[in-house]
């Protein structure tokens, strides 16, 4: 197998381990507290995010709007903050919409991985 293919295989396998679950957390807060400007144009690279750790840190700076976790065996955690008030209800709806998008993308990615691995990368 070529060097490029081996690297690709390694990378995909690394991701597969975490594909079994999906975690999305949404925060609201002031722009400066959430460091909105800091992330701009930057990339986190491929390192895995520890969502819970970020939630812990994030809670001191902002309000948790929603947290969703889906396990491959069907276990689900769906936390929606109902203390935000009527005027901020749209933030919770926004979280739900973004989670839906992430779920769809993950499914496509999973299919891709299955096809590629199912084909021959594992050879």
């Amino acid at each position: 197998m070529s060097k490029g293919l081996s690297k690709l295989k390694e990378k995909i396998e690394e991701g597969i381990a975490d594909l079994s679950s999906l975690e999305v957390a949404t925060f609201a807060g002031s722009s400066s507290n959430l460091n909105l400007a800091e992330v701009k144009g930057d990339a986190t690279g491929s390192k895995q995010k520890k969502v819970f750790k970020i939630i812990e840190e994030g809670l001191t700076n902002g309000t948790l709007v929603g947290y969703s976790k889906y396990e491959v065996d069907g276990d689900t955690i769906n936390f929606m903050n109902d203390t935000l008030g009527e005027d901020k209800k749209y933030l919770v709806e926004g979280h739900a919409a973004l989670v839906e998008g992430a779920q769809k993308s993950r499914k496509d990615f999973f299919d891709f991985v299955v096809k590629v691995l199912g084909a021959k990368v594992s050879n």
């Binding site: 999906l22 999305v24 949404t26 807060g29 959430l34 995010k49 969502v51 970020i54 992430a102």
Partner: peptide, 14 residues
């Protein structure tokens, strides 16, 4: 900010 496996953090200004 989504990861390779679509785990993500969303930050919204109030």
């Amino acid at each position: 900010d989504f990861d390779f496996d679509f785990d993500g953090i969303i930050k919204i200004s109030t």
